[in-house]
Each structure stands twice: as structure tokens, then as C-alpha cells.
Write a protein that binds this DNA or RNA. Structure first.
Length: 422
RNA sequence: GGAGAGGUGGCAGAGUGGUCGAAUGCGCGUGCUUGGAAAGCACGUGUUCUCGCAAGGGAACCGGGGGUUCGAAUCCCUCCCUCUCCGCCA
């Protein structure tokens, strides 16, 4: 959510910033509701002031006295008026809130202009992605792939996009998760194992609701399967005031992630590229607002290090305004090179949300300077998403004999140097 | 799942219809006292919104929502959560 005062005082600035995201928003509707709400609030407060004064006077009057009876009669009409105006106030406030929730976060000044992914800036390239690999195959075409990754039975048991991981396939997933968690711990992130269902309030706070409920699986009692650990993790401190000295807080969490991915098709969803359930380790930071852009660079570096240690070619994209998410102020995508598919796969998104989520979630810290609570800034990034890293690993490390070499950094976690499909 | 008890400020804990944003204690802050500290004493100590250039004024908040009433922390309904006992269970 945006700062209501900013919208009220500098609507043109807000309008211009939202335009950089190339999203349609009706700021005038928000402003009109805000104005209507304030007018009603004044009325209600005046009426309640009258009630309060009358209550105090009546407290000292004899109950049955004529003056008491007169007051009761007088205040009856005020009472019904208050009820009516309060109902209007409440309705207006709710409409305003709903409108506010649909306004996207404003992009940071350093975010490049652009409407489409083509306008994203390739910030850096790492590793030998252009090197010819004669044996490279899309991972789903590697001989024996179906023995380790059983999509057919997954489809039978659950549905498309819910594969079984078997034998070395399952062990490789576990090795990657252990590697990620161990590296992240070294970088200072405290590991958390959160609930993987969240309520509507939590999903609203991080920005999944109200607009993106179609992306989440919902249970019979109105809980949502987490699309990312970001949701339970960010909400850990919802409605809390933190100690300024405790900032920054770094945490990471492994969870399975569930996404309906309605409307996806084609090569995007082949093999491990896009699943309805996948494993991911998420990095999360709660920081002092003055440091959040430094923290974003560090966060990106922490995610990059994982790819670097796995010896996978990757690139860093600085996302343009039009390709930024709804809630992000600035975002880097990390894409790993899949040699067999000859394409880049997104394995991490590192974002600064500034106070956008913190305002929705009411996560604050008590400022030493002002003594008042202020909103923290939240950041998060994948560190990393397993299936696509796995896909790239299979494709880049496939040898001419059909075996796949395990990166040195992963060997201690996997326990062997080669993955066999036999 | 069944039965019962309960949710009040940073914490503990009073308050069962009226001057209660809420006693008291602890904690915390400032000052006095002291060589210094402790104790003691004095004062202060929530959040949000709103009006105002400001000084300052106003309103809301006693788990959430709704209701009764001139008036609700207090009565009623409902939801959530916690605790105790029983059942069930990894």
C-alpha cells in the first residue's frame, strides 16, 4: 500500500510513477473517496463530541429528573444520526481501502523505463554460456530422465505439473536444498521452517490478494497454499513494532511452493521449467529504510553466489518499470543458462519492496530519532528455486556418456560425483 | 471432536451500564537526592486518524465483527485465539 498522505499531497507525482509501471489505475477515484471520507469523519467526530459531552452531563443528573428525560430525548436523535453517518463513513473507508489495495508500488528512480521484457537491462553475465556443447539436450530428452522424474505418475496421482522425484532425482533436490540452506546460513540468514498455508490477511499483506487469488490454491477453510515462503516469512512480524537495534533481520526458509499457473503453456511448461509444486529457499530481510538499497545489492550478491558456486552460467537482469511486479520498487532477476534448451531460466527474483508490504502488514520499528514507530523496508529473493537450477544443472553438466557431473560444491551434500540415470 | 474457563495498556492485574483511555503494582524515561550507585521522592510514560501555518484542539481503540441503550471495557449475538479436562492421533 502507498502512503495515503503522499497520494493526497502529491497526486501528480504518484500518477507519473505508476505510469512507469505501465499499469492502469484510477487515482482520481481514490482521491475522491479520500475526500469524501474526510468530510464524513469530520461530521461523525463532531456528533460524537456532542454525545460525549451529553454523557458526562447526564452522569451527574438524577436519573428520573425532567432535565435527564429531556436530555435522553435530545440525544436519541443525535444517536440515530451518528449511526447513519458512521455507516456511511465505514462504507466509504472500506471502498477507499479496497481502492488503495489495487494501487501498485512506485518504481525506484534507478528502474529503467520500458514496457516489455526487452527493456530489461542485462546487468552482468557470468560463465561460459556461449560455449558450444555438442551433447547438450533439453533435460526432458536426456536418456533415463523419466526414471528420476516421473511426470506421468505425478499426473495420474495428482495432476499435470506435480512430478515424482525418484532416487537420485529426489536426492539431488535434497542436496540442492541443503546446499542453499548451508550457504545462506553462512551469509547470516537464520533458517525458519514456516507454515505452508496462510490466511487471507497474510496473503493480502504481501500483495497476493486481492488481485492474484487465481494464482493460489485455496483450501475449504479459506487458507492458501503458499506460492512462496515470502508470504509466511514476511508476515512473521505482522502488526509488530521491532527494536531499531534489531535491524536488519535476515531470515531464510525452505518451503514447497504451490502455484496454479493458469494460462501457462508450450515450452515454458516442459519438463522442470514450470511446476505447480516446487521447492524453493527464500531469503528475506527486514531493514531500516535508509539502508534498503544497499541491502538489495547484498541480497542479489547472496543469491548470485549460489549460482557461482554451482558453476552455472547465469546473468543478472535489472527489470524495467513495465516488467516489475505489482509490489516491487526495484527488482533484479537471476537467470541461469539452460544449454540444452538454449534459453535462460529465471531462478531468482531479488526485490526491494520498500514500505509497500510493511504498510499493508504494519511492520514497524521504533525510531531512536523520533521515538515514534516507522515502517520497515522489506526485501526478498529466491536463494534459490530448485527445479530450474536442477534443469540447468542437468543440461549444462551432461556428458557424452549420458552421465551428469555434480558440481564440486554440491558433492558433499549429494555424496557422489556423478548422477546416473541408469 | 465434546465439556468448561478466559482474552483489559510493555508486563502483572482491578474494573459488571454513566465524569473510564481505564485504579494499583512492576517496568521504562526525566529530574531531585548521592562522592558514585541503590533506595527514596517528584513528574512523565500507548497507538491510529483528523482539523490547524503553528501553538494546540477533536475522535477512535479494553481479541475481531455486529447488536441493545441517551450512554458499553461492562449486557446480548457471532467469529478468532489461549488455557484445563475428556476423546482421537503422527
Amino acid at each position: 500500500m502507498l502512503d495515503p498522505k503522499l497520494i493526497r499531497e502529491s497526486p501528480d507525482l504518484v500518477r507519473a510513477a505508476i505510469a512507469r509501471k505501465h499499469l492502469d489505475t484510477d487515482l482520481d477515484a481514490v482521491l475522491a473517496l479520500d475526500q469524501a471520507w474526510r468530510t464524513l469523519l469530520q461530521e461523525v467526530e463532531t456528533l460524537r463530541g456532542r454525545q460525549k459531552a451529553a454523557n458526562n452531563a447526564m452522569a451527574t443528573m438524577p436519573k428520573g429528573s425532567p432535565e435527564f428525560q429531556a436530555k435522553v430525548l435530545e440525544m436519541k436523535s443525535v444517536s440515530s444520526l451518528v449511526k447513519e453517518r458512521e455507516a456511511g463513513l465505514k462504507e466509504t473507508e472500506e471502498k477507499w481501502r479496497q481502492a488503495m489495495l489495487t494501487l501498485p508500488n512506485l518504481p525506484h528512480a534507478s528502474v529503467p523505463e520500458g514496457r516489455n521484457p526487452e527493456a530489461n537491462i542485462v546487468q552482468s553475465l557470468h560463465g561460459a554460456h556461449a560455449e558450444p556443447r555438442p551433447h547438450a539436450l533439453p533435460h526432458w530428452e536426456i536418456a533415463g530422465f523419466d526414471r528420476l522424474f516421473d511426470f506421468a505418475r505425478g499426473a495420474k496421482v495428482t495432476g499435470a505439473g506435480f512430478p515424482f522425484f525418484i532416487g537420485d532425482g529426489a536426492r539431488l533436490v535434497r542436496a540442492l536444498l541443503n546446499f542453499f540452506l548451508a550457504e545462506n546460513a553462512k551469509a547470516g540468514y537464520v533458517e525458519v521452517s514456516p507454515p505452508i498455508f496462510v490466511n487471507a490477511a497474510s496473503a493480502t499483506a504481501t500483495g497476493q490478494l486481492p488481485d492474484k487469488e487465481g494464482q493460489m490454491y485455496e483450501t475449504a477453510d479459506k487458507l492458501y497454499a503458499v506460492p512462496t515462503a515470502e508470504v509466511p516469512l514476511t508476515n512473521f512480524f505482522r502488526d509488530e513494532i521491532l527494536d531499531e537495534a534489531a535491524l536488519p533481520v535476515y531470515r531464510c526458509a525452505y518451503t514447497p511452493c504451490f502455484r496454479r499457473e493458469a494460462g501457462s503453456y508450450g515450452k515454458d511448461v516442459r519438463g522442470l521449467n514450470r511446476l505447480h509444486q516446487f521447492d524453493k529457499v527464500e531469503l528475506l530481510k527486514w531493514v531500516h529504510p535508509s539502508t534498503s538499497y544497499d541491502e538489495l545489492e547484498k541480497l542479489r550478491g547472496d543469491a548470485e553466489r549460489l549460482l557461482h558456486k554451482l558453476d552455472l552460467p547465469y546473468r543478472v537482469l535489472l527489470m524495467c518499470g513495465g516488467d516489475l511486479g505489482f509490489a516491487q520498487a526495484k527488482k533484479y532477476d537471476l537467470e541461469v543458462w539452460a544449454a540444452g534448451q538454449q534459453r535462460w531460466l529465471e531462478v531468482s527474483s531479488c526485490s526491494n519492496f520498500e514500505a509497500f508490504q510493511a504498510r499493508r502488514a504494519q511492520i514497524r520499528f521504533r525510531s531512536k530519532d523520533s521515538g515514534k514507530p516507522e515502517l520497515v523496508h522489506t526485501l526478498n529473493g529466491s536463494g534459490l528455486a530448485v527445479p530450474r537450477v536442477l534443469a540447468a544443472l542437468l543440461e549444462n553438466n551432461l556428458q557424452s556418456d549420458g552421465r551428469v557431473k555434480i558440481p564440486a560444491a554440491l558433492v558433499p551434500h549429494f555424496g557422489q560425483e556423478w548422477l546416473s540415470f541408469a
